[in-house]
Amino acid sequence: AEKTGIVNVSSSLNVREGASTSSKVIGSLSGNTKVTIVGEEGAFYKIEYKGSHGYVAKEYIKDIKDE
């Protein structure tokens, strides 16, 4: 049951290796980017990222929809 969301930041949002603010940053997404959410862990969504997965803070994702 995948969902999509939109990155809701003015600059960019860090994509992390794990569901923690201390996890390594593996990339970033600019505002209004559409993401595919494959799961959630605590305050983070697990998303599809560059052929693999990454984690982003839930508070910066809006317009969550079921695909």
Rank of each mutant, 00 (worst) to 15 (best):
E48Q: 13
V56E: 00
V38W: 09
D66H: 09
Y49F: 15
V9M: 08
V38R: 04
D66V: 08
V35M: 02
S12P: 09
V9G: 11
I6S: 05
V35T: 02
N8S: 12
G54T: 01
K50S: 09
L13E: 03
F44A: 03
G54W: 02
N8L: 07
G31L: 12
V15R: 00
E48L: 11
I6V: 14
H53S: 07
K65E: 10
S10V: 12
G51W: 07
K65T: 13
S22V: 12
E59C: 06
V38I: 14
V35I: 13
V35W: 01
G42R: 05
S10W: 05
F44N: 03
F44T: 02
S11C: 08
G54E: 00
V15T: 01
T4K: 08
G27W: 05
V7M: 03
S10R: 10
R16D: 00
S11D: 15
G5A: 05
I37K: 01
G51P: 08
N14S: 15
S20F: 08
R16M: 15
G51V: 04
V56I: 10
A43P: 14
L13S: 04
E17W: 08
I47G: 00
G27Y: 04
N32W: 09
E48T: 11
F44I: 01
S20K: 07
A43H: 11
G18S: 13
F44H: 03
E41T: 09
S22N: 15
Y49M: 03
F44K: 01
G54C: 03
G42M: 05
I64N: 06
S52R: 10
Y45D: 01
I26M: 06
A43V: 13
L29I: 15
V38E: 03
N14I: 13
E67H: 15
K46F: 05
Y55K: 00
I47N: 00
A43F: 12
D66I: 15
S10E: 13
S30F: 12
E59L: 11
Y45W: 11
V56A: 04
E2Y: 06
V15W: 02
V56K: 00
I37H: 00
G51R: 07
K3R: 12
E48R: 11
R16S: 07
H53N: 06
K46M: 10
D66A: 11
A57I: 12
I61K: 01
I47C: 01
I47Y: 00
S52G: 14
K3I: 11
I61H: 01
N32V: 05
F44L: 02
Y49N: 01
S30M: 15
D63I: 15
G18R: 12
K34N: 06
S20D: 12
V38Q: 06
E17Y: 08
K3F: 06
G39N: 05
K50D: 10
K62G: 12
S23E: 05
Y49V: 03
E40V: 08
G39H: 04
G27E: 01
Y45M: 03
V25A: 05
N8C: 08
V25K: 06
Y60V: 05
D66M: 08
A1P: 12
V25F: 06
I47P: 00
S10N: 13
K65I: 12
L29T: 01
G5N: 03
Y60K: 07
E2R: 08
R16N: 10
K24L: 10
D66F: 07
S12G: 13
S11P: 11
E40D: 08
V35A: 02
D66L: 10
N32L: 10
R16P: 00
Y49R: 00
S11Q: 13
V15K: 00
K65Q: 15
G18Q: 13
K46T: 03
V7T: 08
K62M: 12
N32S: 08
H53Q: 07
K62I: 15
S28I: 12
K3N: 05
K65M: 13
S22C: 07
V15I: 08
I26A: 02
S20L: 07
Y45G: 00
L13W: 02
V9E: 07
I6E: 04
K58H: 03
H53A: 09
E17F: 08
G42H: 07
I47M: 02
